[in-house]
Design a protein around this nucleic acid. Structure first.
Lengths: 242, 242
DNA sequence: TCTAGTCATGAACCGGATTCAAAATCCGCG
DNA sequence: CGCGGATTTTGAATCCGGTTCATGACTAGA
């Protein structure tokens, strides 16, 4: 009975259609103006059909975030396979993050919103679980790099677990995105190229961990070259301009 | 004609009442369940009266966040006046942040929500401006500490503006709060005492900046002692236990 | 072709934010 | 002290958009 399976495939396909359309609508009109009715209409389905997929509007947003998270993971996977010293790979993780957020600025905003308690709680438990599951490989990739570094003698944990060490990087990147996206906050603060700055802070943090080989804090060009190299060797297809 | 002024005072007082009550309701029932009608009722005013103060529900949330920001600022001001070496003062900023978020966990959630594009845009322009204004002193305090450190020869900027340097710390703290509050994400990640960890990361970042005197990354106890000292000398009244 | 089951539909429902016309209150003046 | 216009408060009515569910269409197997 292949019928069942074909149905499932079609169902999954339709779900993707909804999510893609949602992203388009959000990009065009802002998250604020996303309306379930409009979305269904755009997809040429009835609202009821949409509700066959998502328990609520919030559920849909979390689903979208989860989908995004998978794309994000794919970029990280590439970094993991990149043939470079652990420190550079870890730095490349931050660069990947940066490229991703820049490429899909709405995604960050949606995630930011979807992970707020209000929305998170309004999504279904299944959806929440799926989101957490989607994030797990990211953790594994990143802690893997840390372990490599320790094994190579480039990094001393000083009693921290690799997971704990990672949270620092993670928080730093996440926090920067937050600041960048909070309108007016950074402008006020006279920061021009926020992502170059983010890279600098990441290098600083890695240096603070004593992660070898240390980056020269005064040599901004070296970091720029590294970013270019990463763009070229790992994300050639995603970085047309810068 | 003092009538005008008394009215203004009363108006401001009522606004505070609304905001305080909103915080209570949110603490009790969660942000999700905050209802404008209920809030007005709790304050024994009609909904219409509430709308005299706030352009929308979102506007109210941003107002609440702004109020919070002022309390936050007061804590930072204390740190600025603390008689200690700049590096310790900077570290104390992070500790202050930590104490604040711990003391008012809902406030963080509200801010997180209020600063999402959806809510931010739904608030009135005046309110947004007020929020940005409320944040400005924080920036001044923190960059002030950086300048002190540079003047004392404890820190080299390496071409960064003090504001830029601050964003790193800021992002790190903000990011950690985000992770801590995102249910399930850190649990998954086997992090037990998240704020102790945050302090470690802050020390790491400061070390990475070469901010003298460096903290010994292996000596966890030293940082604990410093935190205790800060709790005692700066926030004696706010820290009953730990 | 028929039938039971599954799925899609969209008008109706409903909760809650927002509005606004009427009522109450306030204030300065005679 | 009382009057009249301005200001403020009130809460029932409105509006909006997310969600439901009775109905009809479609499917697959008999």
């Amino acid at each position: 009975m292949g019928t069942k399976e074909r149905k499932q495939r079609e169902f999954a396909e339709r779900e993707r259609q909804f999510l893609d359309a949602a992203y388009e609508l959000i990009s065009a009109n802002g998250l604020l103006n996303l309306q379930v009715g409009k979305l269904a209409e755009k997809c040429e389905y009835a609202v009821g059909t949409l509700y066959q997929h998502f328990a609520s509007k919030e559920d849909l947003l979390l689903a979208l975030t989860t989908q995004q998270s998978q794309a994000h993971t794919d970029m990280f996977r590439r970094v993991a396979q990149w043939d470079a010293r652990p420190r550079d790979r870890m730095f490349a993780i931050a660069v990947a993050d940066m490229i991703f957020v820049r490429k899909y600025p709405e995604h960050f905003r949606i995630a930011q919103y979807a992970l707020c308690e209000v929305v998170w709680r309004a999504a279904s438990a299944d959806r929440r679980r799926a989101f957490l599951d989607a994030g797990r490989p990211i953790g594994e990739i990143v802690t893997g790099i840390v372990r490599d570094a320790v094994a190579a003698g480039d990094l001393a944990l000083n009693g921290m677990a690799p997971e704990e060490l990672c949270t620092g990087l993670w928080a730093l990147c996440n926090g920067i995105h937050n600041l960048v996206h909070a309108e007016g906050v950074l402008e006020d603060f006279a920061v021009c190229n926020s992502y170059a700055l983010m890279c600098r802070h990441v290098q600083t943090l890695l240096n603070g961990l004593g992660w070898q080989p240390l980056a020269d804090p005064a040599d901004v060009r070296a970091t720029e070259r590294l970013i270019e190299r990463i763009s070229k060797e790992v994300f050639h297809d995603l970085c047309s301009a810068n």
